[in-house]
């Protein structure tokens, strides 16, 4: 049976992590147009941590949410406009209503992997407005397969039309992906998806393992542009999926062109797996921490590899960026 894989492209959202949330409206317009031309089904746009997240805590974005979404909306005709929403950062009244009114088609409501309860109101609201609603579990390497099933089942009941698990730290090996995706597919009614990070060089292999285990949704970004070591490189993903007989609906040459445009227009540098990214992946630290860890470690002259190790021991999650400085201070104290 020919299997269709739904591709969601967060180049303009996860990629914003890679530039400290400084993507400009012009850059958003250029890539959105290219992705639309290539037939990418969903183009996700926004601050790296999603709607309403621009803040001193996790980083101020260059453009506000309205500018980013209105710009993307203008340049997407075939592709659906998607957003990443973490309840708490994004409120329904202040952020979500505005985003839906701008014309967002797909809302992916995310929580830490053991806190699906917080997504109920947001998922319900999106469904009530007739838009597509997905549930996203982040940092899923921190929970067992059975816990992920329980949390994903909650999201399914709250109205999610698909559940995506994120390897936010790039910590998975293919065997982990197989175990977790298989458990979810067996126990959920709705399609399952996977969002990879490339800290251990496993993003494409893990994404393919996910679809071979029954996932129907994959995330990928142009040149892998994303937090830390980046995501699954979308143009490679499309090529490999096509070679394996899967259908993505994306025009391959169009995707190659979009990636070239992205490299030229929006990337100060193409994501590579830096030494510290490997340690980050091994330690299971959220990829969105990378810029902060590099900056603070440099400022206080500590080895960022030690910082990652310590953050990993403390099991920090997205939103706890302020702990980085605490860890750095502890390392300095211990050094003395």
């Amino acid at each position: 049976m020919i299997k269709q894989i739904l591709i969601s492209d967060p180049t303009l959202r996860d990629g914003n992590h890679a530039v400290a949330h400084q993507l400009s409206a012009k850059q958003i317009a250029i890539y959105a147009e290219a992705a639309d031309k290539a037939g990418v089904p969903i183009v996700e746009v926004g601050h790296g941590n999603g709607l309403g997240a621009s803040s001193m805590q996790v980083g101020l974005s260059l453009e506000d949410d309205v500018t980013m979404l209105e710009t993307a909306r203008k340049h997407l005709s075939k592709s659906k406009l998607g957003i990443h929403v973490i309840p708490g950062f994004a409120t329904i009244k202040r952020d979500l209503i505005k985003a839906l009114d701008i014309g967002v088609d797909v809302v992916r409501v995310a929580s830490h992997c053991t806190e699906a309860d917080i997504t109920q109101r947001h998922l319900g609201f999106v469904r009530e407005r007739g838009k597509e609603a997905y549930g996203v579990l982040m940092m899923t390497h921190m929970a067992s397969a059975s816990t992920l099933v329980e949390e994903a089942q909650k999201m399914e009941l709250y109205g999610a039309e698909g559940i995506i698990i994120m390897d936010s730290a790039g910590a998975y090996l293919p065997s982990d992906v197989e175990e977790k995706i298989t458990a979810l597919v067996n126990n959920l009614k709705v399609p399952v998806g996977f969002h990879a990070h490339n800290n251990l060089g496993m993003a494409i292999a893990n994404s393919i393992t996910a679809v071979e285990s029954g996932a129907k949704i994959l995330d990928g970004t142009a040149r892998g542009f994303g937090a830390g070591a980046g995501n699954a490189q979308l143009e490679v993903l499309v090529a490999v999926l096509e070679k394996m007989g899967y259908i993505t609906g994306i025009d391959f040459y169009g995707m190659l062109d979009a990636s070239d445009i992205a490299e030229r227009e929006i990337m100060p540098q193409i994501p590579v797996i830096k030494s510290e990214s490997i340690v980050s992946g091994l330690s299971g630290v959220f990829s969105g921490f990378a810029k902060h860890v590099t900056r603070i470690s440099k400022e206080y002259d500590v080895d960022q590899r030690d910082v990652y190790r310590e953050l990993g021991k403390r099991k920090v999650v997205g939103g706890q960026e302020d702990i980085i400085i605490e860890v750095v201070m502890d390392l300095i104290r211990n050094r003395k």
Binding site: R127, R129, G130, E156, G159, K189
Partner: peptide, 17 residues
């Protein structure tokens, strides 16, 4: 949900089997 989706103009979404 089918009735709500229908009143909203669709699509009506069948989730699961």
């Amino acid at each position: 949900n089918f009735i709500r989706d229908g009143i909203l103009g669709g699509p009506i979404r069948i989730l699961g089997n």
